[in-house]
């Protein structure tokens, strides 16, 4: 559950691998222990460490002190609390893929999880880590944004619930405080057909160039990744579709609502065109 460990995945030209001996890791065996360590000591939580190793190899790893919470089994549960699906922060993509509850209530998260990295990454990477790492390209984030997921944060003293759509404050920036851990992601009941599409740089082991999740209901809910500094919902587009606009009109609204950029993986022009194409495809396939 690395937090902001990989700010930049492009290596500085004279950077070298981060020195391992300069890193310090503590391990927590329980949530209580983890939270009490974080109360007194600023450490970056890690679990699967899949983002951390990327940054480490590129010499862009900023934090030096870590708290390994991989062993905190109480954060692994996937369960129902009434009608709310509760996903433990340490639920791995593999466990999400295998969970009958997720398959039943949030099948598009199964689809998204299947497209994260490869099996090794899916075995180690966690949902909480994807949320905490705060990449605008995070594969699970549009799914969570589209269903108005709630991030449950806990510190030694308090617990608070933040809607995912309010969790990010900018590029790789979140409302999390240093003494807090993500303990769970709560998914309120989802009505309507779910739809997910990742456009990566290749068929597997790919970072997304654009990622879309949608729920088709009276008021559709649609979220995009990799088109803005954070994952975004597109409320104007949603409203126009809800109010009966044609899909062409909605696509025009969308093109005013998102601001994709050029980077080493793709272009703003392509992202814009594909975003509107995928909006249409979502509308056709869920209609």
């Amino acid at each position: 559950m690395a937090r902001n460990v990989g700010r930049q995945c492009v290596r500085e030209r004279d950077a070298v691998r981060t020195a391992i001996s300069g890193l310090e890791v503590r391990r927590a065996a329980s949530l209580g222990e983890a939270l009490s360590i974080l109360r007194d000591d600023q450490r970056t939580p890690i679990a699967g460490a899949t983002d951390l190793y990327v940054a480490l190899n590129f010499g862009t790893l900023e934090p030096r002190r870590f708290l390994d919470i991989w062993a905190v089994n109480e954060l692994r549960d996937i369960s129902m609390n009434g009608k709310t699906l509760v996903l433990g922060a340490l639920a791995t993509y593999t466990s999400l893929i295998r969970s009958p509850l997720v398959e039943r209530h949030l099948p598009m998260l199964v689809e998204a999880s299947r497209q994260v990295g490869g099996p090794q990454i899916q075995n180690r990477g966690t949902l909480g880590g994807n949320v905490a790492n705060a990449s605008p390209a995070g594969d699970s984030l549009p799914v969570l944004a589209a269903v108005d997921a709630v991030v449950v944060l806990r510190s030694a003293d308090t617990e608070r619930r933040i809607p995912l759509t309010k969790f990010y404050t900018g590029y790789r920036a979140t409302v999390m405080r240093p003494n807090e851990l993500i303990v769970a992601i709560e998914i309120p009941p989802v009505e309507g057909r779910q739809w997910f599409r990742k456009v990566g740089t290749r068929a597997a082991q790919a970072i997304s160039k654009i990622v879309v999740a949608g729920v088709r209901a009276a008021v559709p809910r649609i979220a995009f990744g990799s088109v803005a500094p954070t994952v975004v919902r597109v409320p104007e587009t949603e409203r126009s579709l809800a109010s009966g606009a044609t899909i062409d009109e909605a696509a025009r609204v969308l093109s005013r609502e998102i601001v994709p950029i050029d980077d080493i993986r793709s272009t703003a022009e392509y992202r814009m065109r594909v975003a509107t194409n995928l909006l249409r495809r979502f509308w056709i396939e869920t209609g």
């Binding site: 995945c9 590129f58 290749r202 970072i207 080493i264």
Partner: peptide, 23 residues
Amino acid sequence: VVMRNGAMANAQLTNYTIPTTLD
């Protein structure tokens, strides 16, 4: 190969994408 200022900007296997078995 993305060249920026005369150097490969995507000098990593995540962003210089060779085919995987699924490709």
